[in-house]
Measured scan of single mutants.
Amino acid sequence: MTEYKLVVVGAGGVGKSALTIQLIQNHFVDEYDPTIEDSYRKQVVIDGETCLLDILDTAGQEEYSAMRDQYMRTGEGFLCVFAINNTKSFEDIHHYREQIKRVKDSEDVPMVLVGNKCDLPSRTVDTKQAQDLARSYGIPFIETSAKTRQGVDDAFYTLVREIRKHKEKMSKDGKKKKKKSKTKCVIM
């Protein structure tokens, strides 16, 4: 069974824990209790493949930012979460993405942009803004509501699919490099 290491990042209060708990335990946590770091595991079937999701729910508070490099190193894919009623959390996505790329030393890291709290009427981040940002990053965008469960499975499952595509691409690139290195030079 394939294991996928997913990391949920975003500013404090955007609903990272609520999304994760909704996926794992099928219930909505409405009281806000700032996370330092929590880890969850769940076995699911995605596109006919049974897999184990190892999900790291991270601290959004700035005082825990020193811990970010460590979990970013171990993560295979990242859910970059903002709240649709919090423009600052949307603007912060850029910083999370840049930090992930720096730590992973790669421009090509599996990510999904997630606009959470889409059940709320007080939207300050337009869907088109988020779609445009995701398009500019070359990553999928999904709106979710941890409260109603809308888009929750889709967000995590899409990230797994992005990781699969990335692994497939990397193995193809690896095979191309191996083929090239088999060419021999004969000096007579």
Rank of each mutant, 00 (worst) to 15 (best):
K5V: 02
L6P: 02
V7M: 10
V8K: 03
V8A: 06
G10S: 14
A11P: 06
A11C: 13
G13P: 12
T20I: 07
I21K: 01
Q22K: 12
L23D: 01
I24P: 00
V29S: 06
V29E: 12
E31R: 02
Y32V: 02
D33Y: 02
T35N: 00
I36Q: 01
E37P: 02
D38F: 00
Y40V: 00
Y40L: 00
R41G: 03
K42D: 05
K42T: 11
Q43E: 12
Q43Y: 03
E49S: 11
T50G: 08
L52E: 15
D54Y: 02
D54N: 04
I55C: 05
L56P: 00
D57I: 00
T58R: 00
Q61D: 13
S65V: 07
D69A: 03
Y71C: 15
E76F: 08
E76P: 02
L79P: 01
C80A: 04
V81C: 07
V81A: 05
V81G: 04
F82Q: 04
F82C: 10
F82Y: 09
A83P: 14
I84N: 14
T87P: 04
K88L: 06
K88E: 12
F90H: 15
E91Y: 03
H94G: 13
Y96E: 08
R97C: 15
I100C: 13
I100G: 03
I100V: 12
K101A: 12
K101E: 11
V103L: 14
K104A: 15
K104R: 11
K104Y: 14
D105V: 03
D105G: 12
E107K: 10
E107W: 06
P110H: 02
M111G: 01
V114Q: 02
K117A: 14
D119R: 14
D119S: 14
T124S: 08
V125W: 08
V125A: 09
Q131H: 11
D132M: 05
L133V: 07
A134M: 10
I139W: 05
I142K: 12
T144V: 12
S145C: 10
G151C: 09
G151K: 09
D153K: 06
A155G: 12
V160I: 10
R161I: 14
E162R: 07
H166S: 08
H166L: 08
E168R: 08
K169R: 08
K172Y: 14
K175W: 14
K175P: 04
K178S: 06
K182R: 04
M188F: 11
